[in-house]
Design a protein around this nucleic acid. Structure first.
Lengths: 205, 205
DNA sequence: TGTTTTTCTGTCCAAATGGTCAAAAATTGT
DNA sequence: ACAATTTTTGACCATTTGGACAGAAAAACA
């Protein structure tokens, strides 16, 4: 038998450690570039041990991707009717920006996966994710029609929020290189201020 | 001697073919994921032949990256003083969007490189590119100060243009999955309309 | 035409790497 | 304490892959 029968405390902990190490490795080098040995090193254990817990490198990758996806779309899920529309969208944008700041490796992992054709996410993208986006787009469209925000294509609005917030995580090397070291510290404050002003202007009816 | 002495017509053509094949391969799978064999297949020649012309896979990659970089930043170079400021920025944005549409593989190659730390571009990013961006940012800042466009951080404005335009190329799989097949055809027209309206609202003084 | 140079490929090699396996070490259960 | 189970690893294997090499094929040159 390859996998253990019952999930013990040790197993959960070890899996956690491995996933954390793998996240780092995958974000740095992608699925192909990350090696089992590197993951094992980062996790502080032997290569066969990593295989013992997940069966294969691919399994780790897929596991990570699946579990992170839920976290990743949560802010959009929380975009709701009851708040002031403009404020709600700004809150959504800010949460996405904060996720870029706090979880750059996760962002990079998703980016790499999608960039290379999302072979392990296609289903979810055109299934769950599409449904979710369509639902929220409808909400935004309603706000738009009621004159509470500007008339604007809701799908592309969502894309623009994704693009601009994740840009700071995915292309951090470029952003920091272009801005220079001295602006590195306050980068996310700058981004927040810029994006807030930007979206307020774009969305105000 | 590894490399030929004089550059003949055949050499130019073969190198072109190889670079085109490699671009496709690198965009699909990244530097690590793309194999010499795959590149050779796409180029319709043998593996050693590819090596004969470039010496190594790395050399092809670096060569591509360098030669494409100039093309890639040209639109920003062309952002100039003499035009109407808002129109000039919109033109820049549109050219970037068109590049995403026409050169998605190039966009993906750059994205992948930067995402993974830009080991072969660091110099250029904090050197040439930073200079160029700083220069154009100063121009935009002047427009801003003169009240010709809204008061806005020019560096982040440039980032936002990069992010939003390249998003359509880099994450095309996601965009198309979320929009659905029926909106696939007119996608770039939609994007153009959306972004134009968006930036006009954001930049109008 | 004969010679030289360039182009091209089949074959092979060494390194990297994902994964297996048997057995040791540690833990758990009785 | 002893047996059973789980955890952990060193050693090993098969495959992939970047690239070297020698020589064939073609082209250029004389």
């Amino acid at each position: 038998m390859t996998s253990p029968r019952k999930v013990t405390r040790i197993q959960r902990e070890k899996r956690e450690v491995i996933l954390a190490a793998a996240l780092e490795a995958f974000a740095e080098d992608g699925l192909r570039g990350a090696t089992l040995e590197k993951i094992a090193d980062k996790a502080g254990m032997s290569k066969p041990h990593v295989v013992y817990y997940f069966g294969s490198k691919d399994a780790i990758y897929t596991d990570l991707l699946q579990s992170l996806l839920e976290v990743w779309v949560q802010p959009l899920r929380d975009l709701s009717e009851d708040a002031d529309p403009l404020a709600a969208i700004l809150t959504y944008m800010r949460r996405k920006l904060r996720m870029s700041q706090d979880m750059p490796r996760e962002s990079k992992m998703f980016a790499t996966e999608i960039l290379h054709g999302a072979p392990r996410m296609r289903q979810q993208l055109s299934g769950d994710l599409k449904s979710l986006v369509d639902e929220k787009a409808a909400l935004i469209a309603r706000w738009s029609a009621e004159g509470k925000i500007a008339k604007i294509d809701p799908h592309h609005l969502i894309f623009s929020i994704w693009a601009m917030t994740q840009h700071y995580a995915d292309f951090d090397i470029q952003v920091e290189a272009v801005l220079g070291d001295d602006r590195k510290a306050g980068l996310y404050d700058e981004a927040d201020a810029f994006l807030t002003e930007f979206f307020v202007r774009a969305l105000r009816p």
